[in-house]
Amino acid sequence: MSEGASPTTGSTAGPSTGSTTGRPLRRDARRNRDRILEAARDLFARRGLDVGMATVARHAGIGVATLYRRFPTKEALVRAVFTEQFAACGAVLDEAVADPDPGRGFRTLVERLCELQAADRGFSAALQAGFAEPEEVATERAHALGRFAGLVERAQAAGALRADFVPEDLILAMAANNGVIAAAPAADPAASRRLAGYLLSAFRPGDPETLPHPVRLAPHRVL
Rank of each mutant, 00 (worst) to 15 (best):
residue 167 P to T: 11
residue 167 P to Q: 12
residue 36 I to V: 15
residue 62 I to A: 01
residue 156 Q to F: 12
residue 112 R to E: 12
residue 137 V to I: 10
residue 86 F to K: 10
residue 81 V to L: 07
residue 178 N to C: 06
residue 100 P to S: 13
residue 99 D to T: 11
residue 217 L to M: 13
residue 151 L to G: 02
residue 207 D to G: 01
residue 14 G to Q: 07
residue 186 A to I: 05
residue 96 A to W: 00
residue 37 L to S: 11
residue 69 R to M: 11
residue 114 C to F: 02
residue 210 T to N: 06
residue 201 S to T: 14
residue 70 R to N: 14
residue 89 C to N: 10
residue 162 R to W: 10
residue 155 A to M: 04
residue 203 F to S: 01
residue 27 R to Q: 14
residue 124 S to H: 00
residue 152 V to N: 00
residue 222 V to R: 01
residue 42 D to E: 14
residue 121 R to P: 00
residue 137 V to P: 00
residue 183 A to F: 03
residue 73 T to K: 02
residue 140 E to V: 13
residue 155 A to E: 00
residue 4 G to K: 07
residue 156 Q to M: 11
residue 211 L to Y: 03
residue 149 A to I: 05
residue 205 P to Q: 10
residue 28 D to Y: 08
residue 175 A to L: 15
residue 150 G to H: 11
residue 113 L to K: 04
residue 204 R to H: 08
residue 79 R to T: 06
residue 116 L to V: 03
residue 88 A to V: 12
residue 103 G to F: 05
residue 180 V to N: 12
residue 84 E to G: 14
residue 95 E to D: 15
residue 166 V to K: 07
residue 100 P to N: 13
residue 50 D to K: 09
residue 194 R to Q: 10
residue 21 T to G: 12
residue 52 G to C: 14
residue 108 T to I: 03
residue 120 D to C: 01
residue 162 R to P: 06
residue 192 S to T: 15
residue 199 L to Y: 02
residue 177 N to D: 11
residue 119 A to Y: 03
